[in-house]
Design a protein around this nucleic acid. Sequence first.
DNA 1: CGACGGATTGAGGGGATTCAAATGTAGTGG
DNA 2: CCACTACATTTGAATCCCCTCAATCCGTCG
Lengths: 231, 231
Amino acid sequence: MTSHIHCQNCSMATLCLPYLLSPEQTEKLDTIIQRHRPLQKRDLLVNSGQKLSFLYAVRSGSLKSYTLDSQGGEQIIDFHLPGDVIGFDGLIDGQHRSYTQALETTMLCEIPIQSLDQLSAELPGLRKQLLRVMSGELHASKTLLGTLNHHSAQQRLANFLVTLSSRFKQRGLSSREFRLSMTRADIGNYLGLSVETVSRILTQLQQDGVVAVKSKLVEIRELERLRALTL
Amino acid sequence: MTSHIHCQNCSMATLCLPYLLSPEQTEKLDTIIQRHRPLQKRDLLVNSGQKLSFLYAVRSGSLKSYTLDSQGGEQIIDFHLPGDVIGFDGLIDGQHRSYTQALETTMLCEIPIQSLDQLSAELPGLRKQLLRVMSGELHASKTLLGTLNHHSAQQRLANFLVTLSSRFKQRGLSSREFRLSMTRADIGNYLGLSVETVSRILTQLQQDGVVAVKSKLVEIRELERLRALTL
DNA sequence: CGACGGATTGAGGGGATTCAAATGTAGTGG
DNA sequence: CCACTACATTTGAATCCCCTCAATCCGTCG
C-alpha cells in the first residue's frame, strides 16, 4: 500500500492553506484535496480563459504564469514555487487569466473551489489563511510594480535574486545556493529587461564577487552586498 | 434629522462589498460599517506600518497609495476611485503596507475587519464578493505589471487613459470626458515615466486628435484609436 | 497682483535595446 | 553512446528611447 500524500504530512503545509489550522481541521481540508497528475517540463497546467474549477498548490517543481500580448508574445507575470497557490486572480469571473506552464517536472495538489468555499464557512482559520495568502500575493505584486518602475536593470536583478533566495529559505531550502529553473529569457521577460541585459549583469555581478553563476546554478557569495544593490 | 449614508442606497454598492447580497443581507452589512470623517486634499488616510483594523471603501473623491523607497521617494502603486476598497494588501500581517493620501476631498466608509470576518461566515455571498474584489485587484496589478514591462511610454499612457475611462464608465460617469485628480508627476511615477515624458506624450496625443487635454480635464476623442495605441 | 506649485518645451546624455555573431548546453535520433 | 541539431547564453557594436537638466509658461490661491 502506497503512502499517499496528505496535507497532514506535507512539508509545504506551513506556507500553504493548512497554516493556522489544527490537525483535525487540516484533516478536513485534506479530504477535499486531490493530487494532480505530475507535469513534465513545458506541460501546460491551465490555459487562459479556461474555466476555473480548482486552485492548484505546488508540491514540488516550479511553474511560470504568463499572458499573451497582441503579437502573441509571452508576458511573464509570476513564477510559482512549492507551497504557492495558483489561480486566485481568476476568482473574479471564474476564468483563469493566464497560461501556467511547468518549468520542470512538477507535482501539484488540486483544490475544488466549491468545496473550499463551503469548508471555509465553518473554519475561520481557513478563511483567514485564504485572505492572507491572497493578500500576500497582492502585496508582492504591488511591491514588484514599485521595484520595476523605479529601479535600474542591476537593481531589478539583484532584487530578483534576493527575493528568490528568501523564498527558498522559507521553503527550507538553501538561501545561499539554488537552481534557476527558468531561462535567462524568462527572467528578462519577467523583469522587463532583454536577455542580453540579464546576461551582462549576471556576469558583472559575478566579476564583482557578489554571486557565482554557473549555468543555472546560483551561489550568493555576499548577500548583504547584493541586498545593498537592490536599493 | 439627517439622512445618513447606508449601503442600501449607496450608488457604489454594485462595485463594492454589497454586490451579490440581498437587501436584507446588505442591511446586515450596513450595521457594521461606519462613515469616516471626510478627507481634504493631501490628508493621509493611513500610514505604512499602521495597524490594519479597518478596510476603507471610497464613496466619493479619489486617493493614491504609495510606498517610500530608500531615499524617501514616493512609489505610487495605486489610484483609488469610488467603489474601491482599500487595505487588502495588508491582511497578510495586519499592517498597512503603504501610505494612502487623498487627491481631493474624499468621503469614505470604514469597515471593521473583525466584524467583516464574522459576518462573512454566515453570508456566502459576502465571502464570495470579498474574494472577487481581491481577485480583481490582483488581476489588475498583474496586468499592469505586464503592461509596464513590455510597452513604450506612449503605450503605457494610452493604456492608463483607456483603463481610467472604463473605470469611470463602471461608476456611471462619463467614459469620454473626465478629470485627472492626480498630477502629471503622479501619473509618471505610477507608470514609471518622467513628468516630462508624460507631458510630451499627452501633447502628442492631442496633436494627433486622439484626445483633447485641457489642464486636468481629458476628453477622449477617438477611443478606438487610443485603444489601438495600447497594443 | 504676486508667488508658488504644476505643466510644458527644448537640448543633451546615458542606460538599455536591438542587431549580429560566436560559444556553450541540452535534447534527439541514429 | 555519440553525433547532430536546436536552443540557450554570452559578448560586442551601434542605435534609440527616455531621462536629466534647464528654462519658461500657466493656473491657482493667498
